[in-house]
Write a protein that binds this DNA or RNA. Sequence first.
RNA 1: GGGGUCGUAGUUCAGCCCGGUUAGAACGCCGGCCUGUCACGUCGGAAGUCGUGGGUUCAAAUCCCAUCGGCCCCGCCA
Length: 595
Amino acid sequence: MPDSKYSPLPPWQRTDYCGALRARDEGRAVAVLGWVAARRDHGRLIFIDLRDREGIVQLVFNPEYAAAHDVAEKARSEYFIAVRGKVLRRSEGTVNAELPTGEIEVAVSECEILNTSPVPPFPIAEGEVAAEELRLKNRYLDLRRPEMLRNMRRRHRALKAVRDYLDENGFIEVETPILWKSTPEGARDYLVPSRVNPGRFYALPQSPQLLKQLLMVSGFDRYYQIARCFRDEDLRANRQPEFTQIDLEMTCPRPEDVMSVAEGMIAAAYQATLGIDIRPPFPRLAYAEAMERFGSDKPDMRFGMELRNLTEAFAGTAFKVFAEVLARGESIYAIAVPAEHQLSRRELDEMAESLRSRHGLGLAWAKTAQEGWQGPVAKHIGESEKARAAQAMALKAGDTLLMVAGDANKIRPVLGDLRLALGQKFGLCDAEGRSFLWVVDFPLFEYSAEEKRLVSVNHPFTAPHPDDLERLESEPLRVRSLAYDMVLNGQELGGGSIRIHSRELQLKVMDLLGLTREEALDRFGFLLDALTYGAPPHGGCAFGVDRLAMVLCGTDSIRDVIAFPKTQKAVDLMSGAPSEVSPRQLKELGIKVTS
RNA sequence: GGGGUCGUAGUUCAGCCCGGUUAGAACGCCGGCCUGUCACGUCGGAAGUCGUGGGUUCAAAUCCCAUCGGCCCCGCCA
């Protein structure tokens, strides 16, 4: 008698998923197949909780069916078994209200073990979380856990909704190459050697940016793709070397048109996954205002504690530290911690020390009270300045004022980080809160001190704001772009821009970025040529699928929404990738490994 | 490249500061008993390279150094 374990075909087909059985199925003869989640052996009566992707159902093995009962005695956790039996309504008092299937059970008449299992390296159950290293080494088991299955299904639902939405709005899904051209600007590329062209390399795309622009030149009018993107940079809790973007592009849109499509898309994803009704349009906030009020281009607006500019309030101050900064034409910004959230002297000192060591900035703090300001700097600050500051900040007695002096572009982000840290510390961020917004009017360029040249804030193909075109050469740093980022709770979900569709303007921007004509033609000649052939105005956006899935699943780790993620050292613990390859493979590729 | 943190039965963790008994607990696992459990119960049992290497010491899970790995962060991510 051959062991059923070796038969590639199950003895019978399932009629129902375990987790889908309900009281309405009472009396039906059913067949279910699944994994043993738990076994309770009462000697004569045996109960097995059988799990499949839809949930758990209780099986009852009665000694009357001796053969099935014998098999059940041998069954262990995570064995894969097939049973046939009858759905029975549970008697009064044995109903399990915790389970969706708890009103019924399957009385088993036939049972076969289709495969056995060693004791799993960690429990496969709701609410049990093992060390992540173990989970990643045994990812196929980790994915058996209901939470992970739920996350992956929610991700699927979101993408399905996005696809349906974009299809309904006339977008055509087009696949673009994974093996493509290295365009060294931005993140490091993953390179793939070409055997047929020794010494040459493909690059995996950091995004399909240029390809989708070319599709607009081709006349697709509206394109989208669920695109895998690759960036060889260090990993973070929300960053993997390969990730997925919803990439879309349209012909002749205004920024509002792209934003409106994106809002509808996100709303569709929320509706499909969580049944939550998101109501666009989202507020628009200019970059300059975001920096001024929140010290961030992706502000978390679930709470206040906004930055205020106190430069005016301290004009003519006798406080030396501030006076020196003001003399240099720099600024003083502050945030006020409301009286209901008190910081200890020690916490304030630690905060100051952290600012000093990480940014070389001093923190001037003062606690306000009826009898005046308290703190190390209080006595150096004049009463009229205090009054002006109090008015500017709308201070109440008991508030703590945190002030930083220096170059506005440097200190505002520092205060912005401080604001976020305090918001977290005091639990001001409502976990259920959803604060969507668009940040618009980004600058086109910023100055890179490291490279001593202008660099693109977004990417080199972003169109300048038409109102600022005449400043392009004279004051490039004051030119805004037609770019927009969607921000949710302080995290960038996606962003995009209207692109440059004129060869001349594109060459001018590349020139300002320090690219020579030759370099521009060498790297981007195909794009520049394409633009000459009646390229229509176009623009679009890209959204991070993984980050969206994180938000929808309520997790802080991107690895919880990716089936087979990599560790912080970019290793796949399950397969061992990246691994060494044979000398023969290397030789064929003309590659010599030197380290 | 840098900073922080964790690594002890299959699992989750305690023990580490202040070195000294046979390294403990819970869950899981194995065996016996058990016909209404669902975290079944009950009786018994097995189970450890204290990440690895070196050093200090009469003696190291414990102190020191190095190293490997997981995680978080800075740099990096147009």
